[in-house]
Design a protein around this nucleic acid. Structure first.
Lengths: 342, 342
DNA sequence: CTGTTAGCGCTTTCAT
DNA sequence: ATGAAAGCGCTAACAG
């Protein structure tokens, strides 16, 4: 199919009566090439329609200029934003991204790691799925010296950099805010406690409660997958409680929004009877009525930071080599948690 | 960095006293290899921690097992769904996806095509940005015989397959539905007429009007980028109209939702005074109040279809080779367009 | 500043 | 059923 012969540096060399080595150098920015020869080379290359063959180059240099990305799911605003940030940085630095989704499944995550490993990515950016307990499946990469950077859903490892926000603090802030609005019985909706993001927010929630003299009540904490459906189920459980809780802190917006819809339908006034807060500042939060209080996640920045940290390491520009980079988040207070009497 | 030597088929060959050629064959499913030797080979490979080197293989076979994907933006539910579909099919068939975003910019789209071309993708899946007028920047690929498939935002080309829904029909249906609800002055919000999806929906809108004896009024059609902000602007223009329109058909949900918010805020009753419909069936449509009438797009299926069509062509399984594949959409009627009196 | 040379690891005729 | 050998296109010593 691929039509006829590819133009190689040998063709250019022949046409210009130079050696392939010179062509190779001229096509990069090798210092030891005269300016005018470089120009002749580049011109002839364009004239012949030359295309750099990155496989030959990869094979030779043992470097692919490819970065692997593993995420639980692509289909959230939050994640798309992160990827967009990564893509920009990576492309500017001459890297391609290979993106794969684990769908929150450990099995798929392992398969993805292996695929990326086999395609010899130069480095890996990963955010872990719900099920992952350890990172044995990443060890072969790490042992090979392939840099691995976790973002958002991270794992402590001496060789890996983690890019996160302060989820503990965010959880603390959200909960304190709800308490400040007069809430005393606050439901928390969380997900897999294997993941730092959820465990940390829960810790923040607990500390905020105790710092404000509110007893922790385990029956107010729900752990699920934070889907719409989960919101429906939590809401139905909430409606059976007596007394009713007066606040909800959900670890994502989709689930918070789903709760608001269900509770409103059941005749509960939001925020007067139950105040609600979510997480991630998804566009949804500005559509639901009342608008949802949430935590703004610096997605773009997180993606950029992850990619640039990785690339710095790949290019041996070293720079600062922190084990953990914490980005700033923002609590965005909207109507869903503003009590009129406060 | 990459620690020490890689294991190659030569290492396996040596350990087993076989030739590299036999190892190479044994690692695939070459028929001319004895079952037990194949088994020995596979075992030894695992034992030594052998990893297939796809660059050497790509170089030799002139095939990369990589598919390039170009989309305008990744950050919509719709697009994530499409990508998820592609990914599944591609991975199952042993292909990797390289995804890039044009951000609706022609310049970026051209750059992306070139990058993917240079990384020697075996085939390309593309959805065009707003600005693109022709596909000259794809010609070099096409001429090289690299299969190119457009999805959603497509372009007619004898060598390319297009995967779409019937946007004309969808536009016609939405408009007819609004008319059926008693609307007579229907605003249509559209985007770049260079893109089939928008031009076709507009055509559908016009034909529905004329089929129902309603005169087409150019001042009711807005062309913008369908963003939240665009919705704000359109709404403000609408509020200045006299008489007020009684229906809005927006070419995406984000903009429709933005309009609903603005109009509600201005005291307009939705759907009684103005009925609204969107497009894509984004999760947003089930959150806005009233819930938004929209057109369900078979995203997952579109992604799967695009990828499998491409792969079939790559693997010369040929199969049916249609120039256009039309998937089924569904009009989902929700409260935003249901007139109580109908 | 430019050329020579020797592979990177794999696949694939063509032999045997 | 297996082996020998050539070469995909590029790069990096090393030499000049």
């Amino acid at each position: 199919m691929r039509a006829h012969k590819e133009i190689t540096i040998y063709d250019i060399a022949e046409a210009l009566n130079l050696s392939p080595a010179t062509i190779s150098r001229g096509l990069k920015d090798h210092p030891a090439i005269r300016k005018d020869t470089r120009k002749r080379i580049v011109e002839k290359a364009r004239e012949l329609g030359y295309q750099h063959n990155s496989f030959a180059s990869s094979l030779r240099r043992n470097k692919t200029n490819t970065i692997g990305v593993i995420v639980p799911r692509l289909n959230s605003y939050f994640m798309s934003t992160i990827i967009a940030g990564m893509e920009r940085v990576a492309n500017n630095a001459g890297y391609n991204l290979i993106i794969s989704q684990s769908m929150e499944s450990l099995k798929k995550e392992i398969a993805n790691v292996n695929t990326l490993f086999n395609s010899r990515v130069d480095g890996l950016l990963a955010s872990l799925g719900y099920e992952t307990e350890d990172i044995a499946h990443f060890e072969s990469l790490i042992n090979k010296g392939i840099p691995l950077i976790f973002f958002d859903r991270v794992f402590e490892h001496p060789k890996c950099t983690n890019i996160i926000i302060d989820n503990y603090k965010a959880g603390y802030e959200v909960t304190s805010h709800l308490i400040g609005q007069g809430c005393k019985r606050i439901v928390h909706i969380s997900a897999s406690q294997k993941r730092n993001v959820y465990a940390d927010r829960l810790r923040g929630y607990k500390h905020a409660l105790s710092d404000h003299g509110i007893a922790y009540d385990e029956s107010l904490v729900f752990v699920n997958n934070l889907s719409d459906q989960a919101g429906v189920e939590v809401s139905s459980a909430i409606l059976k409680m007596d007394p009713l809780p007066d606040g909800i802190f959900s670890s994502n917006d989709a689930c918070a929004v789903s709760c608001i819809r269900e509770l409103k339908q059941a005749g509960i006034k939001i925020p007067q009877e139950i105040a609600v807060a979510g997480f991630n500042d998804d566009p949804l939060s500005k559509v639901i009525e009342p608008n949802l209080t949430s935590v703004r996640y610096p997605g773009e920045e997180m993606g950029e930071m992850a990619a640039s940290t990785l690339i710095r390491r790949l290019d041996r520009l070293e720079g600062v080599n922190l084990n953990t980079i914490v980005l700033k988040h923002n609590l965005i207070i909207r109507e869903s948690s503003k009590r009129t009497d406060s």
